[in-house]
């Protein structure tokens, strides 16, 4: 099994982790450090140009895999791709009405707080959104690992992209308000 592992292995295999949305993040962190300890260019300083290039490619590969697996949204997208399911992020914009309504509400309150320079409201909105996102993460694990409901999971992934974008907007607003 080990001998299958090479540069082209998938991210889960590279980190020796099971292919699932549920993830042992301590194991991921540990494995990331172990792999970088082997492949990072600083560990191959004497290897000459070709060796340095190889090590940079490997280290980039490990970093990319780590970032993909660490982030639940990116992990879900990657897992859907691996299992041959198209999450339709480009062409499917249908969202449940209550979700859209909630998003609009949050967006408006963020825009207002940004106008008024109200840091407290923004911090509160951020905290709430972070909690909502965490709940979606938990539901995604159920849908993908337990129920194998990939279509429903894809819908949730599209919602998550919405929510993460809003989180970015809140962070921007916080920055504008603070300065």
């Amino acid at each position: 099994m080990m001998s299958d592992l090479d540069f082209a292995a998938d991210h889960f295999a590279l980190f020796g982790l099971p292919r699932s949305q549920q993830l042992d993040s301590a194991a991921l962190d540990l494995r990331f450090r172990q792999l970088q300890t082997e492949v990072h260019p600083d560990r191959h300083v004497q290897a000459g140009d070709a060796g340095q290039r190889l090590s940079m490619q490997w280290a980039s590969r490990v970093n990319e895999a780590y970032q993909t697996l660490k982030n639940p949204l990116r992990r879900a997208l990657y897992l859907l791709q691996l299992t041959g399911h198209d999450p339709q992020v480009e062409n499917n914009t249908a969202m449940p009405a209550d979700f859209l309504f909630r998003q609009m509400e949050l967006r408006e309150s963020v825009a207002e707080a940004r106008r008024d320079g109200d840091e407290g409201v923004l911090e509160a909105a951020r905290l709430q959104l972070v909690q909502e996102i965490a709940a979606v993460h938990r539901r995604l694990i159920e849908l993908m690992d337990g129920e194998h409901e990939y279509v429903a999971a894809s819908g949730l992934v599209r919602q998550l992209m919405f929510q993460e974008k809003l989180l970015g907007e809140i962070d921007d607003a916080l920055e504008v308000v603070a300065s």
């Binding site: 592992l5 172990q34 300890t37 082997e38 492949v39």
Partner: peptide
């Protein structure tokens, strides 16, 4: 450098596997 390119790639694979085994 060119003569050792494949060798280096194999060595890197080996050390990645070592990291896995270590864990």
């Amino acid at each position: 450098g060119a003569a050792t390119e494949d060798f280096a790639a194999r060595r890197m694979n080996q050390s990645v596997q070592r990291a896995l085994a270590g864990k």
